[in-house]
């Protein structure tokens, strides 16, 4: 009987440590200080922590710039890891968030008073936080239903809306929040962060590779870390190469793009054009990627004059729309090549 009531060896905790986490979770900033590149936003938020008076917030910016990380770090600094769970309601697009959920779940959570329990190490202000991640994907109706909820319960609950496109948040909702813009990370910020991870994970790297990786990620730190982890898994202990990074990112090799554009410029014969296109399509690259790389290549090509570039650019815009609607990739790329060859004449 005694043994039954004795504290068991905490096996569950050990198991938790064993589970390998993806690096994007492992290196998610735990405190406000460690958030990279968003100095202004962080400075403002820190001030509000000191005064303990948090406004309703609206975070917006491209993916991978640290929006979710910031609010989680903020919550951790306010309540500490223990109380965090009871004080936070996190809803994202994978939960049902129709108008009904706003009316029931969010409203119920928002109106309950906060418990007196507090962690002495943390400020623990007397309000809860509702995080609505990916808020731009909420329906208009659901957003309107939030309007009054935000105002009525503002004494005990603060809201934080997170979205990529601020324009998709309805105006009445946006005007109730303090807006924070998250800017894409520049190359030096991304590289320094990646370097830190590489050193902790004992990844074999060269500075050029990291720079290449930072360039490819286009300011999206999550993408950069994900690529880095994938590359390190593929290579085990070997040195990570730029080629494998490009392969993981799905970037078409420059040779292939060059040969495609060159054959478009030199060939008049359609059968040969068709063969060149089939070769690229068969290697499985995505047409959007080919389109954007061909565009870069054309823009740098001094053999085309401004008017020709403009003409091709106009077509590329059209093709992007076609591809987004699911038009056959083979046809679109063939059309692109024919346009280039036609313009060159």
């Amino acid at each position: 009987m005694n043994t039954f009531f004795q504290a068991r060896p905490s096996s569950s905790v050990n198991v938790h440590e064993e589970i390998p986490q993806p690096w994007i979770e492992k290196y998610r900033p735990k405190s406000m200080e460690s958030i990279s590149a968003q100095e202004q936003t962080v400075a403002v938020l820190k001030k509000t922590i000191e005064s303990q008076n948090l406004p309703h917030m609206l975070f917006y910016g491209p993916p991978g710039t640290g929006k979710t990380s910031t609010i989680l770090a903020l919550a951790r600094e306010l309540y500490g890891p223990k109380l965090m769970k009871t004080r936070i309601l996190e809803l994202n697009a994978s939960d049902e968030r129709g108008i009904q959920v706003i009316r029931d779940k969010v409203k119920n959570f928002a109106r309950t008073a906060v418990s007196n329990r507090r962690d002495s190490d943390y400020p623990c202000p007397p309000y809860k936080i509702v995080i609505l991640d990916e808020a731009d994907l909420m329906t208009q109706d659901a957003q309107s239903a939030l309007r009054r909820v935000i105002e009525t319960y503002s004494k005990v609950t603060r809201f934080c809306l997170i979205c990529n496109y601020v324009t998709r948040i309805i105006e009445p909702l946006a005007s109730r929040c303090a807006k924070f813009r998250f800017k894409p990370l520049d190359i030096s910020n991304t590289t320094s962060r990646l370097k830190m991870i590489c050193e902790q994970e004992a990844v074999n790297y060269s500075p050029q590779t990291l720079e290449e990786l930072a360039k490819l990620s286009e300011g999206d730190l999550r993408k950069a870390i994900m690529y880095l982890q994938s590359a390190s898994k593929l290579h085990k202990k070997e040195m990570i190469t730029s080629e494998s990074i490009r392969e993981i990112a799905g970037v078409v090799s420059d040779d292939l793009i060059n040969s495609l554009v060159e054959s478009a410029k030199s060939n008049k014969d359609e059968t040969q054009l068709e063969e060149a296109v089939t070769k690229v399509i068969d290697s499985g690259f995505s047409a959007i990627q080919i389109l954007s790389q061909v565009q870069d290549r054309i823009l740098d090509d001094f053999q085309f004059n401004e008017a020709q570039k403009a003409r091709i650019g106009e077509f590329i815009g059209q093709f992007d729309k076609y591809l987004a609607d699911g038009t056959d990739e083979h046809l679109v790329i063939l059309n692109l090549i024919k346009v280039i060859s036609d313009t060159n004449e």
Partner: peptide, 11 residues
């Protein structure tokens, strides 16, 4: 795409 590892399988 940024959450997955991309594996390209050519013909």
């Amino acid at each position: 795409r940024s959450r997955c590892m991309l594996i390209r399988v050519p013909l």
